[in-house]
Amino acid sequence: MTTILYSATMSLDGFIAGPGGDMSWLAPHLGPNPVADDLLPRVGALLVGARTFYGDDPNRGTDREGAFSGGWEGPQVVLTHRPPATAVPGVTVATDLDSALAAARAAAGDRYVNVLGADVAAQCLAAGQLDEVLVFVAPVLLGDGVRLFHRPGGADVRLEQIHAATTPVPTLWYRVRR
């Protein structure tokens, strides 16, 4: 059975991107991490939001740099309300969450579907489709930007810890309790 996982590197004050989608803050905090290194071969497909894929930061986006610092090769499903005019090789475009999840699950088989993008992760959570959350906490305070989760008025979501590590950065892995 496919597991839907949201993974992200977050600043200590809760942001996964700086103002305007800026991702330049992340570069000094990337490097070998046993948890991330072990996860990557267990991911069967990516479910990516349009802002993450095309990038709100004018210099970045997974369509240009690749996911996981270019370490990812495999099927991607991009959830967007504005499909591109031309097809992107290896990318399936979906305009609603249900079809995006179905396509990503089919592509992933029994491996993880890794969600990239706070908005898509929040949609999966609201739909009861998010199974796990993995957060790498970078030792930096951004002060503003894109939050790990933005859920105004949302109910509490209970989590069960699966794994925690402290090196090279604090790493927290949770299962969403239903």
Rank of each mutant, 00 (worst) to 15 (best):
P83L: 02
A103F: 11
D144T: 00
G61S: 14
E160P: 04
Q76G: 07
W72F: 14
G90V: 09
Q129Y: 03
R147Y: 12
V78Q: 07
A100N: 13
E160T: 12
G145E: 08
V140I: 11
Q123G: 12
W72R: 02
A87G: 07
T80A: 05
A106L: 09
S69N: 14
G109A: 03
R111P: 13
V157H: 10
L97Y: 15
D110I: 00
Q161F: 03
R147M: 11
L148E: 13
V135Q: 05
V120A: 11
Q129F: 02
G117L: 07
R111D: 13
T80S: 14
A126F: 01
G90T: 07
A127P: 15
V137C: 04
A100L: 09
T80D: 03
T92L: 01
A104Y: 08
G143M: 02
D98N: 11
G154P: 09
A102L: 11
A102R: 09
G70T: 12
Q161G: 11
L97K: 12
F68K: 00
N114W: 04
V78P: 08
R158G: 10
P75A: 01
W72M: 05
A94C: 13
A100E: 10
E132Q: 15
P139I: 00
A118M: 10
L79T: 05
V146Y: 12
V91W: 12
G153N: 05
G153Y: 13
L148Q: 06
A118I: 10
A103C: 01
S69W: 07
G153S: 11
A126N: 09
V93Q: 02
A107G: 12
A67K: 07
H150D: 15
A85R: 08
G153L: 06
F68H: 11
T62Y: 15
D144M: 00
G128M: 06
F149L: 06
A102F: 09
P75M: 02
D63C: 14
L159Q: 02
T92Q: 08
P139E: 02
P83E: 08
E160F: 03
T86H: 11
L141F: 15
Y112P: 08
